[in-house]
Each structure stands twice: as structure tokens, then as C-alpha cells.
Write a protein that binds this DNA or RNA. Structure first.
Length: 954
DNA sequence: GTTTAAGACTAAAAC
């Protein structure tokens, strides 16, 4: 049996209940899950055991059809049954669980395991027993690291989140020693492992100024301790090992990765020294977390091992004869419950949004390495802190901004946690329908790789889509990612056959998206840096206290497009910032490239960034073309642009191998290698291109630039934009706020981009590109008048007059008269279903046939619909080589012919139609022909759509 | 009543 049967609890049993040893209690122990329904009453009562604390919590029980109620406990405690009937009842938490009760607020979720059911005044109520655990907000999956930080000091946990962990040698070395430890457990040769692991971290070590030999020597020292200990184990018994196992507990709401699991018990490796007899308390807490996690995975352990690898044989404890460096200790019930209470504190704080002060726990500021940081943050943001405050508080508007965005980012974080919870709340089929899992794979083969890892192959049995892509980290499982056999794995190949690599040879039949807090972490750090480390002048501009200034530039950069030329002048001459507004097809990317070239020619170091890898690569490609021009014009310049082997050396693309396109791969900065070389490559680069997420990485945070150019800035949140512009003296944002805004999970302040805010605040700092190179004149009219004040116009007569006739083998005369105009409307009454319309779908299939008959290639036709359901409906009725997608996914691309399915009959209600930016995107994708398909009476019910109708019917 | 991307050094590393 599991934890529930662990000897006796450390707490007195609730007064008036049967003894925990009474078998009858075990048989009626229940698993209670529900939502706090009112104020919690905490008080002290006299019992036969003396004074006891209790908390009465009004709880609305979960129901079977709620996801939460569905979570039948999986722990091996036979007598437990879940109660899930939606009743409102009282749950009494006794003794130390009252500490968790004090954290509860109405609306929070609560789980009590091994509760006792009892009748009170005709009502069935529940209370904790000596074997209960109480879990607050169980779907908030707290990481073991968070709990470890929190027990040291809650404020340390907060500061780590806020300002990130800086690049420092002890941390990097610690990571290396752990990697080598894992390798040893998997049977890899020590020297080979050390060489490989140090090589992999070349760039980081280089930034720290370390040499490979010195690092290797240090790792060898730690490895000696590990090897010695492993030898001891091998002499005495057959060990069963598992290294670096990722564990998730749905009952306790904890996740973590154990360094190693030996005969079912957690082993934690520490790089430091500890000559005391006992392990450090925070290390014990960490091991106890893994014990809880292992418990849920069928283990039953109460022993933890801590391996202090800096301890050597010389440090052998004379007094105790302790075998160093390993320290074994026993985990009692009390420690495990304490850990769950710690975890509850984190979950509750995160839910309520409160900022930790340090008083929550017994923090000792005088020994803390983060004391100064803590005091500065407290002082600048005027936060209460046990360490005290230093310095002047930021102006009120900046603190208000901080609070607003902190809340918004944390809200996003909670959404990420909700994604974790779906791993067990949703069925495999639901996950697959959400595109978040590939299920029903057929396991094919496993193959051991060099270094002890495994290559696993599985065959796809269906053609289902998923968000998973090559290079992604995923949860690979035997069908159940939480309770079953699962490992964190990397997707190497993804076609009919799936190839992944993992530490253990799981018989994989399912892959799940593994949610990550990385993006939210980086947003928080970017906002922190912008406010607390940001230059005053920069903040004056961001907060509307000073107008951006410009140096007058007379130079002509682009001679056939006045606005583009002006945009480059503004970008080059900006003292603070410049804003380039580029409607569809207006040559934003070219303009950026030209501006960067001009900056580079002035000897400046430039950062090129955007939200997506694709956008970064596009802009970089345009820049490389520009630089080619330089070489063509001036052979002397070419010497400096090119290295001996003909490759540009002053341009570097920072990003992962899977993120960067094959075309840009030659410019990608490799992380592995000789430290000094890698650092030189990065630091000598005059142009560095990276996504905004990468700009927030520890590596990029060390870099400084004269200017940052951010493309597609209207799709970035403010903190996302800050990640890039924090690194530069001046910045240029390029985008179009009349197209779709940033994608965020929760409705909050993140939905407006910094680009949009600044364009509105400082119209004079912006330039709107007004000539488009994409659409026939008739097509662009509506978007131009509706979204761009009529300023958008064709760049050339050729663009204005382009029609299908220009395409080889296509004749407009072969089209029915209704389609002869570049813009046409097809009135379809449609069916009444909400997210699909089969009549529109049929009509569209028919239209495609007619275009084909007129000589058009299917691949030149795109179909856009608002709903995914309609997209699949249309996909099933039209040929495969016609692109069919939602508006949102069509943004950024264009087609010769676009057909739009409005999928609305009778009325236009629904949030999807309310954002007019969506129609702007849909209507500006075609070059030569646009066909709108919909119900005219529904469209006429909204003034904007009505004007669209008039325009299409002209 | 909807739609939506992509990022990536996973979590843990330690003075």
C-alpha cells in the first residue's frame, strides 16, 4: 500500500473520530474534491487529546461531468472512493491542515484524500483523518524547484521568477555535473561524457570566460564521488536505476524531475559540500517531493538519498563514520505532509495574485545571497519585504504598470497550468481533437544510442493533425502520460513514422504536447528589466513623458517609394524610436532590410527580431539580399562582408536548429564548441537575428546593440517587445495594428501591442507605407477606405491592373460572368448550423471547378473560413491541393485567388465577427481575384459587413 | 456562442 498506509500519522487524530487504526475507517475513507463555497471558519476546540485546531470549509462538491470530478484517485489505497455529486457540504480540516485552510478563498479548488464521511444533523459531511492530505488548487502544478525555493524563502521564489536566474558559473557547472551523472547511470564512459557535455555548452562557458580544461577538471572531482558511491552500490546488491525521470502528480499538484530513482527511492545529486551529519533541510524537502511523486506512480518509499559530490573521502565524518558523500535519511509522514502544505502556500498565492514578503516562512535574510536584489526590488516597487527596502520607489504610474502586467502575465501562467491539468482531465481522444496529442501510435522499435539514450519508432495509424513539430519536446507514453509509463522525449522526425529520442525505452503509443512556462517566465523578466533596469530616457518615452526625437537625415535610401524612403530615414535617424506602419503587401520587410543596411554602413550593431522564427528568417533573408547588393556595387566592401570561405561573418542567427529555416542554417550560431570561438562569433557579429523569446534568454541578455528592429510588432505583447528592445539603445517597430493582435490565452492587458500604443501616442514618430505590391486595385479599395483612411494604393499600374489573364494558360473569358470581376459575391442562403455551412462548402467546391476549367492551378486558390469546423467541412469537399484554412492562420500569406466562406446564416452574431481586423486580413490575401460566399441578409445586419457587401456587388 | 502562434535550456542547476 501507499502513503496512506505509512505507519502512523504524526498528528493527533481528530477528536471524536475513530482511531486511524480502526479498520472500519479505512473502508469508508473517501476522496473529496470540490470548490470552496464560502468563508472558512478556523477555531480552536477542546478535545479529549487537549486543544485542537479545526477549520470548517463550505465546499461545493465536484460532479461527475466536471473534469475535476472525473479524477478518480489512482493511489493504491483500496478503501478510497471519490464523492462527486455536486452537493454543498462542510469539510472539516483538523490541526495542521488549518494552515492550508487559512489560504482558502471562495472559488478555489480543494482535494482531501482519505477523508472520513459522517452524518451531522441529517447532512453528510467530511473531515480529515490522520491519513489525509489536503491539496489546495490541485490543478496548479507546482514544480519541485519552486517548492525548494519557497522553503528557503518565499520571496526568493518570487525574485527568481521576476528577474530570472542569471548566467553564472556555479549553476552551469551544477548542470554539467548532473548531465554527467545521468550519463554514468546510463552506462556511458566518464571521460567521453565529460568531453561531450562540456563541448555542448561551449557558448555558455565562453560567455563566463571559462576554459574547457579547467571545467573538465572540476567535473572530474565531483564525478569521483559519484563513481565511488556507484561502486559501493554495485558491490552489495543488484540496483535498479532510472535516471532523470519526469514525474507528475495529479493528486498533489506537483511536477518534477528526479535526478535518479534507485530501487524506487529518489536520489538527489548536489554539487556542493555538506559535512554535517544531516542533509540540508531544503534538500530533504526536495527529496520528499519526489517521494510523493513516486508514491503516485506505484512506489512505496520512505528513504531518500542525497549525494553531496563535493565531499571527498578525506571528509569522512570521523565521529559517525558516515559514508560520504551519500547521506540517506528517512522521510516520515510529517515531512511529507509539511511538503504538501508548502505546495499549498504556493498554489494559493499564485491563485490570489499576492506577492510574497518573506514573512510567510522563517526566512533568514542575513545569510541570503539575494538580499541586495530583494531590497532593491522591494524599494523600487514599494513592496513589503522582510529584508527591507533600499532606494527610491518608481513613479506611481510605473508601479501601476508593473502591477497590471504582472497580473496579466501570471494569468497567462495559470492558463499554462490549466494545460497541464488537461493531461489527466481530458481523455486521449479529446486531447487528439484539440491537436494536443498524437494517439493510437503503433510502437515499432527501440534502438540504443551512443551515450545511453534510446531511439524509439512508432507508426501513425490515422492522419490526425497536431501542434507537434519536429524538434519539440513531448511527453512520450504508453498511452497514459500521467499515470502510465512516460518520458520526456524529443521529436526527431514526424511523418508517417514518428521517430523520437528519450532516456528510457518507453513502448510509445502516444505523444502529448508538454506545456511550458518558458514564455511567461521570459515575459516577466523582460518587463522587470524594462522597468527596473531600463534607461530613464527610454522609460520617459514608453510612459508618454517625452516625445521621441529624430536626427534629420537627408540621404535618399529608396528612390521609387517615398514613404519607404521616409521610413528608412526615420529608422536611421531615430534617437529613441521609430514606428513603421505597413499595411498588407507594402514592402515592410524590404524597408527593414534597407534600414538595417544603412545602420550597418554607419558602423552600428543591430538586433533584428520578430515573434516567429519564420518572420525573423524572412527579414534576415531580405537583409542578406541587401548586403549582396552592397557587394555588387562595391568590391572593397565585399571584403569586409565576407570571410575567406565566402560566407558572411558579420550576420548571426541565434536560435534552435529546429526553429531556424534550412536557408538560414549557415548563419546559425552553434552553441557547442570551443568556448572562445563561439563567443567571438556572437560578439563580433554586427547583425544578430533572433526571435523575441530568444532575446529573453540568458545568452542574449548579455548582448548590447545600437538599434533593435522588430518586425510584425503588432502581434507582440508589450513585454514580448521589451525582450528585444531592452537590448538596444534605440528601437524601430514595424507592423500593422489593423491586422490581428497578439495571441494570448486570457483576456487582459497583453492583447494590445506596444506598437499600437505608441502609434497612437506618437503619430509623428510613425510612417505609414502606402503603396501595396499585392492586390488588384478593385480588391484593395474596401480595405483601404475601411482600415487605412483611403491612403492605401497600388504601387504601380501593373499591380493595379493585374488580373487572372496575366497567369499563363488562364482566361477570364472562360469564367462565368459572375466571376469575371476581380471581386465577386455569391449569395448562398446557407444552412442553419452554427460553425459549419454545408451549402457554402458545396458552392465553393463548385467555384473551384470553374476556376480550374478556366485554366487556373488548384495551388493558386485559397479558401478562408472563420471556424475550424467549417475549414474541415470545406476541406472534405474540395481537392487536396487547394489551401483551406482559418483567417487567423492565413495572416502573413497571399494567393492568386481567395474564396471566403462567411459561415453565418440569418445573423452575424458571435465574437469571431466582432473583430473587424479579421475581415481586413481575409480580404487582403488575394492578388487577382476575391470571391465572397455568404448569406447577404446575415452580412447586411452589421454596418461594416454591409459596406463590404455593397463594395463586392458593385 | 470563437479563433489563434510559437516559443524552447524540460527542470534543475547554486553562491
Amino acid at each position: 500500500m501507499g502513503i496512506v498506509s505509512r505507519e502512523r500519522g504524526d498528528e493527533p487524530v481528530a477528536a471524536g473520530t475513530d482511531s486511524v487504526f480502526d479498520r472500519s475507517l479505512v473502508t469508508i475513507a473517501v476522496y473529496v474534491r470540490g470548490t470552496v463555497a464560502g468563508e472558512v471558519d478556523v477555531r480552536t476546540v477542546s478535545t479529549s487529546y487537549g486543544e485542537s485546531d479545526l477549520a470548517e470549509v463550505p465546499v461545493r462538491l465536484a460532479t461527475d461531468d466536471e473534469p475535476a470530478g472525473d479524477a478518480t484517485p489512482t493511489r493504491s489505497d483500496g478503501g478510497t472512493a471519490a464523492v462527486a455529486d455536486g452537493r454543498e457540504t462542510t469539510v472539516t480540516l483538523w490541526n495542521k491542515w488549518t494552515e492550508s485552510a487559512e489560504l482558502l478563498e471562495p472559488g478555489m479548488e480543494l482535494v482531501v484524500t482519505n477523508a472520513k464521511e459522517e452524518e451531522y444533523q441529517g447532512e453528510t459531511q467530511y473531515k480529515t483523518t490522520g491519513e489525509s492530505y489536503v491539496v489546495v488548487e490541485p490543478s496548479f502544478l507546482v514544480s519541485v524547484t519552486s517548492i525548494r525555493n519557497w522553503v528557503e524563502c518565499p520571496r526568493l521564489y518570487y525574485l527568481n521568477k521576476l528577474s530570472g536566474v542569471p548566467l553564472n558559473y556555479p549553476v552551469v557547472k551544477g548542470t554539467l555535473v548532473h548531465e554527467v551523472f545521468g550519463d554514468l547511470l546510463r552506462g556511458r564512459d566518464l571521460e567521453e561524457s565529460i568531453d561531450a557535455r562540456v563541448e555542448e555548452r561551449g557558448l555558455q562557458l565562453g560567455l563566463l570566460g571559462e576554459t574547457p580544461d579547467a571545467v573538465k577538471e572540476e567535473i572530474r572531482e565531483n564525478a569521483k564521488a559519484i563513481e565511488g558511491w556507484l561502486e559501493q552500490g554495485r558491490l552489495t546488491e543488484e540496483d535498479s536505476w532510472r535516471s532523470e525521470q519526469l514525474l507528475i502528480s495529479e493528486t498533489f499538484g506537483i511536477r518534477g524531475r528526479a535526478d535518479a530513482v534507485r530501487r524506487g527511492a529518489p536520489v538527489e545529486l548536489k554539487t556542493g559540500k555538506n559535512l554535517k551529519k544531516e542533509p540540508r533541510f531544503k534538500d530533504k524537502v526536495q527529496a520528499a517531493c519526489y517521494a510523493l511523486l513516486l508514491e503516485e506512480h506505484g512506489g512505496d518509499v520512505d528513504i531518500g538519498t542525497l549525494l553531496y559530490t563535493k565531499n571527498s573521502a578525506l571528509d569522512r565524518n570521523e565521529e559517525t563514520g558516515d559514508l560520504t558523500p551519500a547521506k540517506e535519511f528517512t522521510m516520515g509522514d510529517g515531512l511529507l505532509k509539511y511538503v504538501v502544505r508548502l505546495r499549498n502556500e504556493i498554489a494559493a498565492k499564485e491563485t490570489s495574485g499576492e506577492i510574497p514578503t518573506g514573512y510567510e516562512a522563517d526566512a533568514k535574510c542575513e545569510y541570503c545571497f539575494e538580499q541586495d536584489t530583494c531590497m532593491v526590488v522591494s524599494g523600487r516597487l514599494d513592496q513589503e519585504s522582510k529584508a527591507g527596502q533600499i532606494g527610491q520607489a518608481l513613479p506611481a504610474e510605473e508601479r501601476e504598470y508593473f502591477d497590471r502586467f504582472y497580473r496579466a502575465i501570471e494569468e497567462e501562467r495559470r492558463e499554462v497550468h490549466r494545460e497541464y491539468a488537461k493531461l489527466w482531465e481530458q481523455t486521449a481522444e479529446e486531447r487528439a481533437d484539440d491537436d494536443r496529442a498524437l494517439i493510437d501510435l503503433e510502437f515499432v522499435a527501440k534502438r540504443p544510442l551512443e551515450g545511453g539514450r534510446w531511439e524509439l519508432r512508432a507508426r501513425r495509424t490515422g492522419g490526425a493533425n497536431s501542434k507537434l513539430r519536429e524538434g519539440d519536446l513531448v511527453l512520450a507514453s504508453d498511452g497514459d502520460p500521467v499515470r502510465g509509463d512516460s518520458e520526456l522525449a524529443r521529436i526527431e522526425r514526424l511523418d508517417d513514422e514518428v521517430v523520437i529520442t528519450a532516456d528510457e525505452p518507453v513502448a510509445v503509443t502516444r505523444l502529448d504536447v508538454y506545456p511550458s512556462e518558458l514564455t511567461t517566465d521570459r515575459l516577466l523578466v523582460a518587463m522587470h528589466d524594462a522597468l527596473l533596469k531600463g534607461d530613464e530616457r527610454r522609460k520617459d518615452v514608453l510612459f508618454g513623458r517625452a516625445e521621441p526625437e529624430f536626427e534629420e537625415i537627408d540621404e535618399a535610401f529608396i528612390d521609387n517609394n517615398e514613404r519607404q524612403n521616409e521610413a528608412v530615414r526615420k529608422a536611421v535617424g531615430a534617437e529613441d524610436c521609430a514606428l513603421i506602419h505597413g499595411p498588407p503587401g507594402t514592402g515592410k520587410t524590404y524597408t527593414i532590410a534597407r534600414a538595417i543596411r544603412a545602420m550597418v554602413e554607419r558602423g552600428e550593431r543591430v538586433l533584428l527580431s520578430a515573434f516567429t522564427n519564420r518572420a525573423v528568417d524572412n527579414a534576415l533573408e531580405a537583409l542578406l539580399e541587401q548586403l549582396e547588393d552592397v557587394i555588387d556595387e562595391d568590391s572593397v566592401a565585399s571584403e569586409t562582408q565576407r570571410s575567406g570561405d565566402g560566407e558572411a561573418v558579420d550576420v548571426v542567427r541565434v536560435g534552435s536548429e529546429s526553429g531556424v529555416s534550412d536557408e538560414m542554417e549557415p548563419y546559425r550560431l552553434e552553441r557547442a564548441g570551443e568556448p572562445a570561438d563561439r563567443v567571438a562569433e556572437l560578439e563580433d557579429a554586427q547583425v544578430v537575428a533572433a526571435t523575441t523569446a530568444t532575446c529573453g534568454s540568458r545568452i542574449m541578455k548579455e548582448q548590447a546593440f545600437d538599434a533593435a528592429l522588430v518586425d510584425e510588432a503588432a502581434q507582440l505583447t508589450e513585454p514580448g517587445t521589451c525582450a528585444a528592445i531592452n537590448l538596444a539603445e534605440r528601437f524601430v517597430l514595424v507592423g500593422d495594428h489593423e491586422q490581428l493582435p497578439p495571441v494570448v490565452r486570457a483576456e487582459n492587458d497583453l492583447t494590445e501591442s506596444l506598437f499600437e500604443r505608441l502609434v497612437e501616442r506618437y503619430p509623428d514618430a510613425g510612417v505609414m507605407l502606402d503603396r501595396q505590391y499585392r492586390m488588384n486595385q478593385r480588391i484593395q479599395v474596401f480595405a483601404s477606405t475601411e482600415f487605412y483612411d483611403g491612403q492605401l494604393r497600388p504601387a504601380t499600374p501593373e499591380v493595379a491592373g493585374r488580373t487572372l489573364d496575366d497567369l499563363e494558360g488562364v482566361s477570364r473569358d472562360a469564367l462565368p460572368e459572375t466571376l469575371s470581376d476581380p471581386v465577386s459575391f455569391v449569395d448562398v442562403e446557407g444552412d442553419r448550423s452554427q460553425y459549419t455551412d454545408s451549402e457554402e462548402a458545396e458552392r465553393i467546391a463548385d467555384l473551384i471547378e470553374r476556376y480550374e476549367a478556366a485554366g487556373l492551378e488548384r495551388s493558386d486558390i485559397g479558401v478562408i473560413a472563420p471556424f475550424r469546423a467549417q475549414v474541415s467541412e470545406i476541406s472534405s469537399t474540395v481537392p487536396d491541393d487547394v489551401t483551406v484554412d482559418t483567417v487567423d492562420r492565413f495572416q502573413g500569406s497571399s494567393q492568386e485567388v481567395i474564396i471566403v466562406s462567411f459561415t453565418a446564416t440569418g445573423s452575424l452574431e458571435g465574437p469571431i465577427f466582432e473583430d473587424y481586423r479579421r475581415i481586413n486580413v481575409a480580404l487582403t490575401r488575394p492578388k487577382r481575384a476575391l470571391v465572397l460566399v455568404g448569406d447577404s441578409s446575415a452580412l447586411a445586419s452589421d454596418p461594416v459587413y454591409e459596406r463590404m457587401l455593397e463594395w463586392a456587388r458593385q
